[in-house]
Amino acid sequence: MTNRVQLMDEMNRLHHDILLMGTKVEENLRKALQALRAEDIELAAEIKADDEIVNALQLKIEDQVAILIATQAPVARDLRELVTVFKVTDNLERAGDHAVHLAKIVKKVAGEPAFRQASHLERMAEIGSEMVRGAVQSYLNRDAEEARRVAALDDGIDREHKALVQETLAFMKGHPDDVERASRLIKVSGFLERLGDHMTNVCEAVVFMVEGRHVELND
């Protein structure tokens, strides 16, 4: 049936790079989580370097898409898939930045007393990882149902974020000396909350790509 062999080959290569980019972001998020648990400052530094790979992949992928649009004149589903790539890479890159933010905080919150509230960050990062993996898979598999399922996970991140903020504020009242350190938790929690939003954006883009209509998955 297909005689757009060249376009298909190029799109397969593109999918490979997107998978690589997604995997790298997910890996960084997991590393950041591990660094947070273990207060491992060296691991946190490694994440910053890995994020450069993510940024480079974004540029490579987007250049490739622009060239394909210029040379292959894709239309209909092919065009929607290529336009969607920009949303995927843009949001993945931002998610990668949030992994770096999480890693950076390790140094600043390490020490006594240990924050019980950090467990919320851990759960947010876990859900975030699952969202990154799921969002990229839903793109690669052109699976709108999977995209909807993944976007729904964002509620879990939002719940954890709210709980963390409430608990941290309560903690601050009883520990005025630790307010600055504790406030960093709230800041980074905000970043992870946004990571969930970025992956929701990817999921919405996937639904658009598959179904050709814009949807709002999380209000």
């Binding site: 049936m1 239309v75 209909a76 065009l79 050709g212 209509r213």
Partner: peptide, 19 residues
């Protein structure tokens, strides 16, 4: 037609998949 055709046959034709 060119961004979101309804019929699979249109999609295949305009995207060059008839062969």
């Amino acid at each position: 037609i060119f961004f979101n055709p309804r019929d699979e046959r249109t999609e295949n034709y305009i995207s060059g998949r008839f062969g």
